[in-house]
Amino acid sequence: MSDPETYSAAGEVGQVRLRRTRMQRIWIDLKNAPPTALFGMTVIVIYAFTGIFAPWLAPHGQAEIFSQPYAPWGGEFLLGTDQIGRDIFSRLIYGARNTIGIALATTLISFVIGGGFGLMAAITQNWIDQVLSRFVDVLMAIPSLIFALMLLSIFGSNAWSLIFIIAVLDSTRVFRLTRAVSLNVVVMDYVEAAKLRGEKLGWIMRREILPNILPPLVAEFGLRFSFVFLSIAALSFLGVGIQPPTADWGSMVRENASLIQFAKYDLKGAMTPLVPAAAIALLTIAVNFVVDWFLHKTSGLKDEH
């Protein structure tokens, strides 16, 4: 506190405004976040931690086979073993790394493709825009799961073709969004000025437009991630996605699904296929919570009630 003897009102008004550092601003935002968003962020952090440190956290290897298949819960195997005797708990932990890692890579690629072409189409607005937009229309006319199944049967089911097929199919939505939001920015005077200054396409994309359309893109990234995550899980569940012995939540559900028939005799054992499925559900719900909060915050909308 200032000394009351030397206090002057003019001095306080004239004081240089204290600038908050980035960390302080993030901290204030976090403190004001609703409980759902905090819950979502906690879940995401836990998943990320599990995924990154999977080899140190898991008690056994993901493809390590033990002599006892379908072991019950508890004892040496916390969640039992699967049909050929692999530890479910370890596979669950490795699954966090594999499933989320692949979904994240796919979403990143789809944003690079979709965002890049979307910006290019919005800036040039010539025949490139026409060709790209019509091409995207064609891709979007067919449901993406069916399209993905068709392409997987052509290119074969392995992790790489899975990543690229889903990324390309998903980039159509990113393209639409990027193009739509950047059309509003492209007409701004400073973009015109940059064009007159002789800046190249890449500069205008990265330095003039991208910073101004970032909030909707970040929110879309969250949503796209959960969609990609769900569709990869669905494809793996169908047996055409991530291939064994790689631990993956979608295929784990399928491999242990028959256990559910014995719920009357061993309820815990019957829950085994539900655990990875619940892990998938929890992450998508968490991401949705965070995206909701982020959209709400950046759009500056107030509650209607």
């Binding site: 769900l230 669905a234 979608g250 559900v253 539900l274 998938i280 719900i285």
Partner: peptide
Amino acid sequence: IATPEFFVAYI
């Protein structure tokens, strides 16, 4: 909406 179809099915 946020849960995979097979999760609903198995429950």
